[in-house]
Design a protein around this nucleic acid. Structure first.
Length: 325
DNA sequence: TTGTGTTTTATTGCCTCC
DNA sequence: GGAGGCAATAAAACACAA
């Protein structure tokens, strides 16, 4: 212990002190103990006085003033009789007085570590052994650290709660925007499907082509592919609105399937493009994607994100795929 | 008064620094 | 290798409900 060195100049004596004092069962006749207790210094080592019990001294609760005992003891001559007498008392810890603790606290606020000079001076001022002061600072630092950890934990928890609330708000906002996009898309659908015949056709029937493909869907297979093929054949790409401009990053790479669910291949339109050049792929995408998206928008259930979008998070991670809107 | 949980004082062993 | 710090722990002192 750090304080041990104050009295006898060495860490190894730290344990010796306690052994010597605690094992006292007779006169103080050991050479090391004599040296420690009867030194000629102005602030002699007082042994573990603070740990010893004196029935007649400050046995009150919490307010016990060990200092008064120390001081009175110091004023006396440390005669052998009294010395021997107190050594025979059973060992007991003694709490520091309120004044002592206050002084220690003040000192701790200034600097939570003790230089040897400061320790000695403080000990002298409040009537404690330097070792006790060192121990008090040691324990005080441990308490401070514990409280600091608690504070840090609370701060982190608050931060997490705040972030979580913010995240949930963003999810709600995203859902709202998504619904608006869907609504707008549905409104645009008749215009898209109407193409050049719009002016000749009853506008009330603009959605019919998509709702009722001009061929038997059963002969084609999956509805999504069917829609793609149908749209391609109709070549309605010229009727695309600006919303579905092929320059939009949303449509440049396999598109909405990856936007909706990058991990769900069932959403990906995968014609056998292995034989296509990059240009052909691009052209195909440009001509097919918007209608495909229309079809998928009809097919997909956007009330819930694809399950594979969770990425292991407990909360549906809508953000990843929805931000593409 | 007593049992129990908490706080405070002190010890011990290990570690780092010089 | 000594000095000093820290974590873990012991144990006394204290607080408090039953």
């Amino acid at each position: 212990m750090a304080g041990g060195s104050v009295f006898s100049g060495g860490r190894s004596n730290r344990s010796n002190l306690s052994v010597l004092v605690q094992n006292q069962s007779g006169p103080c006749n050991s050479e090391p103990l004599d040296r420690l207790f009867l030194s000629g210094s102005s602030y002699p080592f007082l042994g573990s006085r603070s740990m010893l019990s004196f029935e007649d001294v400050n046995v009150g609760k919490g307010t016990s003033n060990s200092r008064s005992f120390f001081q009175s003891f110091d004023r006396e001559e440390n005669g052998d009789d009294e010395f021997d007498e107190y050594l025979h008392h059973p060992e007991k810890k003694r709490r520091l007085s309120a004044d002592q603790v206050q002084s220690l606290e003040k000192s701790f606020e200034l600097e939570n570590k003790l230089e040897p000079e400061r320790k000695t001076q403080l000990a002298k001022d409040i009537g404690l052994q330097p070792r006790q002061v060192a121990i008090w600072f040691q324990n005080r630092r441990a308490r401070w650290k514990t409280k600091q950890l608690e504070k840090d934990y609370e701060a982190l928890q608050a931060s997490y709660t705040s972030l979580q609330a913010n995240y949930e708000n963003l999810l709600k906002e995203k859902d709202k925007i998504k619904a608006e996009v869907l609504l707008l898309t549905e409104k645009l659908l008749p215009i898209e499907k109407g193409g050049g015949d719009v002016e000749q056709t009853d506008t009330n029937n603009l959605q019919l082509p998509l709702q009722k493909p001009p061929f038997d869907s059963a002969s084609v297979g999956e509805g999504s592919k069917l829609s793609v093929v149908a749209c391609k054949q109709e070549d309605i790409s010229s009727a695309k609105s600006d919303i579905f401009d092929s320059e939009s990053p949303h449509y440049t790479d396999g598109v909405h399937s990856s936007l909706l669910d990058p991990g769900d291949s069932s959403y990906v339109f995968e014609p056998d493009q292995s034989d296509l050049s990059q240009d052909e792929e691009d052209n195909l995408s440009k001509s097919l994607l918007p209608p495909y998206i229309f079809a998928k928008l009809e097919d997909a259930d956007y009330s819930e994100p694809p399950e594979t979008c969770n990425f292991g998070f407990p909360v549906d991670d809508h953000a990843f795929w929805s931000w593409s809107y």
